[in-house]
Design a protein around this nucleic acid. Sequence first.
DNA 1: AGGTAGACTCGGCAGC
DNA 2: CTGCGCCGAGTCTACA
Length: 305
Amino acid sequence: MPELPEVEVVRSGLAPALVDATVSAVTVHDARALTRHPGSVDDFEQSLRGAHVVAVCRRGKFLWMPFTPAGGSNAARAVVAHLGMSGQMLLRFSGAPVERHERIRLDIDHPHHGALAVVFADQRTFGSLALDPLLPTTDAAPGGFGADEATVPAQVAHIARDPLDPALDETRLRRLWARKRSAIKRVLLDQTVISGIGNIYADEALWGARIHPETPADALSARHVTRLLAEIRAVLDKALAEGGTSFDAQYVNVNGQAGYFAHSLHAYGRTGAPCHRCGRPIARVSFMNRSSHFCPSCQRMPRTR
DNA sequence: AGGTAGACTCGGCAGC
DNA sequence: CTGCGCCGAGTCTACA
């Protein structure tokens, strides 16, 4: 479940079951799911066993769960999760059968919900879990959505705040965009500039703002940027409200249910279909080893800024 | 084919 | 003008 809305669906699904839960057992079925964990598999299992989960947080497409270790008192580390292309976090009853592509299972005890299993399943193994130290944020604001503390895991420190984060520095963002000569779509996908946007929502936001994906970022007027930011937030909010985009069974919430934003797409995956604004066919071009979908008629390159 | 990180190249640029 | 290093930008690859 990759982009911001899909990851937020997972975060908000995990939070009620995980906040205040204690990890009773850790089972690593496949060590490839720990490629980003700095220590050994044993270290992962032992460090987490008995841990008390404090929060479930998200910045862009990264999730993390600060925890206090068994017998400890302060949350200095977090479980960091990235779903990659095909990762899932599933909530199951305790003792539920092993899932297809299950990589790691955390058995937890929650004061209200009792014994549960949190399953990290991942068909393509591009996703991962890791334990990572928490570092103070540079702006002293909470690390991300769901976070009270002004900390982020080390692996997330280079990731910019996302469009739904109240602490997003819009002045900095505008300055960065105004300085970049690269295509705006490339810049939207750069997670160190603004995070959470992937191929689907980049195409959707650019369609909404009527901006050609190959427009140099520094050619956008202040008005264009304002419109683009508004479209980004609108499309992410709407997708979140609809449970995310699910093209197949990989993209599901913690209960295995699909979202239905795929029905609301205007550009992504609609090659040759009529533009919902002007009726002309949506084009698809190869871009950065992936594809861009846009309306050549209503998404024109601005000539000046 | 919805993602990220790392290795690599290329060009521009500042300084010597 | 050459060599050097750094930086940003872009491309490719790895991971199934």
